[in-house]
Write a protein that binds this DNA or RNA. Structure first.
Lengths: 251, 251
DNA sequence: CGGACAAACTTCCCTAGACCAGTAGGGTAG
DNA sequence: CTACCCTACTGGTCTAGGGAAGTTTGTCCG
């Protein structure tokens, strides 16, 4: 029962991370099973010759990763994998769309009069002027996403041409239109292509589609932009892992 | 410029949380804009009369929430809302399905011979015996999800009757079939109802559907169960928020 | 036998420093 | 003018404790 991996003080991996990894590995190896109590903080301090703060931080990492749960006054317990803890990350999709071989082609960019739906989303009056931008996202020569977006029209801040460039994707994902935005709300749902979308993407109307809707607000909590990405659903799925992944996981 | 909210030592909210909240509010209020540098740790220590560790913890929370980003040697900076940081949580859906007014009705539970697809998913030979369970999840009297699941058949561990009870949903989401599972992989994709699914749910075949597929592994990294939830897509969407939500957010 | 209480645990949060490492700016030697 | 280095400032990590608060257990007393 000798601790094979105590703590390597010369490693680049800081002690708290080594400790967190070690505990994780022991759980993955079955040394601690779901429901079991981990050694107390004091015991871990002694066993690994680190200070309480270091132990607390290591445990904190595991708590955040939903691997263990702490109960005040009772102890720290190993959690079974929880379906409810699952969350699907948009990061991979966004990084893919922001990659160099994906380009955005502007189909249309003009000032239009807000229809009822746009007016409601942007909290403006119907008929007010808004900027309409329609983009096609292509990977190589193949269209993968259709993007339609409406921005509130502010005469004081004329439409920046740079935002319309094909390189705007970068900003679109990292800092969306300058940095005057406070927060955004995203909604993912499944739908079917409309006529317009289908023709632009070269698909049949009614084909299964993902719709990712985004609504961004400025620092006065007023809607600033509203738009949606539409793409074929059968080419994209979201995958995630709960619990402690096996050895070859990580993509 | 007097700090109105220093730190209330008598509050139930611990200082690190008060500090994190205060900084968050200042960002939300526009005092610090995206790209701005926050006061340094030392300055925050002095301004709020707390120790460095407390400041670090507060900042750590904000980093984790993707509100700020720290750069070693340079400072801590406010992040604009990032699309790539978005993740869709299954928690709400799971809590909804686990609520008391949702019940699971067993349609079928028997031992079958593994077909090619099941055999591949469970890493077994085709023709081996597996347990097949089909459930209907009802809210009130209305079916909302169809659940099909295959478990490896282990004669040593006979099928627990409790797992088949209509109350099994609880376990299904929190600890899935005892606690012998190490991790699970979940995949979400959009699809259309098959004949079987449609008839069970009282829908038309071809209707848009969500499919949530789950594959659980035991502590030897062997697949233990594989199954999928299928439900109407037009009644369910996933919503999330990036950046700092406005005042009335939080559902 | 039963209930109150105290001790011994546990986690939680904090202090007040220390040293290391990365960055930026200014001054100096070439 | 350029290249270099030195210094001040930044976050990153850790130490070695402390007191507060929740839980469990066992003991003592009625």
């Amino acid at each position: 029962m000798k601790d094979r991996p105590p703590i390597d003080r010369d490693s680049f991996e800081p002690p708290y991370a080594q400790l967190a990894r070690t505990i994780r590995e022991r759980i993955a190896g079955g040394a601690y099973r779901p429901g079991d109590r981990l050694p107390s903080e004091a015991e871990l301090c002694a066993a690994f010759s680190v200070s309480p703060m270091t132990v607390r931080r290591a445990i904190g990492e595991l708590v955040r990763a939903d691997v263990v749960v702490t109960e005040h006054g009772r102890g720290t317990f190993v959690k079974p994998p929880q379906l409810a803890a699952a969350s699907f990350d948009l990061g991979d999709l966004m990084r893919y769309l922001a990659s160099p071989d994906v380009e955005a082609r502007i189909l249309e960019a003009r000032i239009v009069s807000a229809g009822p739906r746009v007016a409601e989303k942007l909290a403006r009056e119907e008929g007010e002027r808004v900027i309409s931008i329609k983009r096609l996202l292509l990977r190589g020569d193949e269209p993968v996403f259709y993007h339609s977006e409406y921005l509130v029209f502010d005469p004081a801040r004329p439409l920046v041409e740079a935002e319309l460039a094909t390189t705007a994707l970068q900003d679109l994902f990292s800092g969306a239109h300058g940095s005057d935005l406070k927060f955004g709300r995203l909604t993912l749902h499944a739908s079917a292509f409309t006529e317009t979308e289908a023709s632009q993407l070269g698909e049949q109307p009614g084909t299964l589609a993902w719709v990712l809707e985004h609504l961004f607000f400025d620092f006065d909590d007023r809607p600033e932009s509203w738009g949606r990405f539409v793409g074929r659903a059968d080419r994209l799925s979201f995958t995630t892992t709960v619990g402690i992944p096996g050895p070859q996981e990580g993509v």
